[in-house]
Simulated assay, not measured.
Amino acid sequence: MMPSSTLKLSGDIIEAASVETKQLDYIVVGDATTVDGLAAPYDEEETPYILKIERPDTGNNILDFWVKHANKDLYSVKNSEIGAFEVVG
């Protein structure tokens, strides 16, 4: 959702059809072998378990991208916009 959007709940139903969505370039993935890793998706603001997504150029696939960028750090220079939940109403 866009930061200015509000997600409406009607009983047990989420009314998401009218919400403007946002494309993210990262997801939080926890390491299930540790307590911190299990908590990671629920503690997005404070976790080091962030998986950044790189989209290959049009016409290339993930293997082409991997071969072209082998052994290069592509992510430490990228910033992630960390989402936060706010209870409204």
Rank of each mutant, 00 (worst) to 15 (best):
K68R: 05
E15G: 05
G83S: 08
V88Y: 01
I14G: 01
P56L: 05
Y26Q: 02
E81V: 12
M2W: 08
S18Y: 02
G89L: 09
V87K: 09
P56S: 09
V29S: 05
N61C: 07
L51S: 00
E46K: 15
S80N: 10
A17N: 00
L9C: 13
V77R: 14
Y49P: 03
Y75S: 06
D43T: 14
S76M: 08
E81H: 12
A40W: 01
K8A: 03
A70T: 07
I62H: 13
V29T: 10
K52R: 15
K68E: 13
K8I: 07
P56H: 12
S4R: 00
D36V: 00
L74C: 05
Q23P: 09
Y75A: 09
V28F: 02
A39W: 10
V67L: 11
D57R: 04
A17Q: 04
V67Y: 08
N60F: 13
E81D: 15
N71F: 13
V88S: 01
S5N: 05
A17Y: 00
S80F: 07
A39G: 02
N61M: 06
D64C: 02
V28E: 06
N61P: 03
I82S: 01
S4M: 01
T21N: 13
Y26L: 00
A84K: 10
P3Y: 00
D12Q: 15
D36W: 00
D25M: 14
A39Q: 08
T21F: 10
D43E: 14
I14H: 04
W66Y: 14
I82E: 11
A84H: 01
K78V: 10
K52L: 14
G83E: 07
S5T: 06
L51V: 04
A40T: 06
D43G: 12
G30N: 06
T34N: 01
A39V: 06
S76I: 08
P41H: 04
Y42N: 02
G59C: 09
Y26D: 00
F65E: 07
E46D: 15
S18C: 04
E20N: 15
V35P: 09
A17S: 10
I62R: 13
T33Y: 04
S18D: 15
H69T: 13
S80M: 01
L51D: 02
L63P: 00
V77L: 13
A17V: 01
Y75D: 12
F65L: 11
S4D: 01
H69F: 12
V77T: 15
L74M: 11
V29M: 08
L9T: 12
N60G: 02
T21H: 11
Y49L: 04
K22F: 11
